[in-house]
Nucleic acid binder design. Structure first.
Lengths: 133, 133
DNA sequence: GTGTTTGCAAACGTTTTGCACAGGT
DNA sequence: ACCTGTGCAAAACGTTTGCAAACAC
C-alpha cells in the first residue's frame, strides 16, 4: 500500500491551495519552500501516483507542459494564445457533443477533451486597440 | 521567397501518400528511402514551414508526439488508449458545441479542439474477450 | 552573387529512470 | 525487518538551433 510521506502530503496541500494549474516545476518551487531538499523527480513520481489514484487531475495539453489540478470535478479549459493563461470553464461541463457518431467508427469511447483557444480579456483588449489604430 | 528544394517536395509527397498521421520521425523514415542523406532537423524545419504556409496540418495532441496531415480540411480525431492508433472523425466536423458560454468568460474564441479517446475496434475486441474470461 | 536551405551535431526543456540510502509501516 | 519512497544525477525523449557548406534563384 502507499505510504503517507511528508513529500506526498505537502505536494497535495500546495496543489489544493491554488486555483491556477501549476506545472510539475511550478509545484516543485512551491513545495520546496516547505520541504527544501525535495527533488523534482519526487514531485513527478507523486503527481503521477496521485493522478492514477484520482486524487489530482493531470492535463496533458496539446503543445505545452503537463499541468495539474487538485479539483477533480470534470471541467473544460480555455487557453490564451497570446499569454498562455489557462482558465476553467465550469459552465461547459456538459458540452452537448454527440457520442453516437463515434460508435460508427467502431471505437468504444471512454472520454473526450475539449480545448478552446483564443484571447483572454486582457490580451483581447490589447489586440483590439492595435486593430483600431 | 521559399525555394523549391528536393527535400521539401519529397516530404510533402510522402505525407500526401498516406492517410495515417505520421510523426516527424515517421516521415523522416519515409523520406529517407528517397533522400537518404536528409536529416531529421530538415524534416522538422520543413514541416514547420509547410504548416505555417497552410500546406499541411500540424496536430499537437495532448500527451503525445506532434503528428502531421496533408489533408487540410477540418476534422476531429479519436485516439486509441491501448495502441495509440489515431483515426479521423469527418462526420463530427460540426460538433454542436455551444460557443456562447465562452463569451461569458470574456475570451474571444478563435478555435477549439476536440479529442476523443477510447478503444479502437481491435483493442476493444481484445479487451472484451479478456473481460468475458 | 545573394540569401535560403541543408546536414550534422550539439543543445534544449520536460519527463523518466537507476541507484543506494532513508524512512513509513 | 520489510519494502516503498526518496534525493541525486544521468538518461531519455521529442524538438530546436548554431554553424559552415551547398544550393536555388
Amino acid at each position: 500500500m502507499h505510504r503517507r510521506t511528508k513529500q506526498r502530503r505537502v505536494i497535495l496541500e500546495e496543489l489544493a491551495k491554488v486555483t491556477t494549474h501549476p506545472t510539475a516545476s511550478d509545484l516543485y518551487e512551491m513545495v520546496r519552500r516547505r520541504v527544501p531538499l525535495i527533488s523534482l523527480g519526487t514531485v513527478y513520481r507523486n503527481l503521477d501516483l496521485l493522478s492514477r489514484e484520482g486524487a489530482v487531475q493531470k492535463f496533458e495539453f496539446a503543445g505545452s507542459k503537463t499541468r495539474f489540478d487538485a479539483t477533480v470535478a470534470r471541467h473544460n479549459h480555455v487557453r490564451c494564445m497570446e499569454c498562455g493563461r489557462l482558465d476553467d470553464l465550469t459552465e461547459l461541463a456538459d458540452d452537448g457533443v454527440d457520442d453516437r457518431a463515434i460508435e460508427l467508427n467502431g471505437y468504444r469511447i471512454l472520454g473526450r477533451r475539449i480545448e478552446f483557444f483564443g484571447l483572454c480579456p486582457q490580451c483581447r483588449e490589447r489586440c483590439e486597440e492595435i486593430e483600431n489604430t
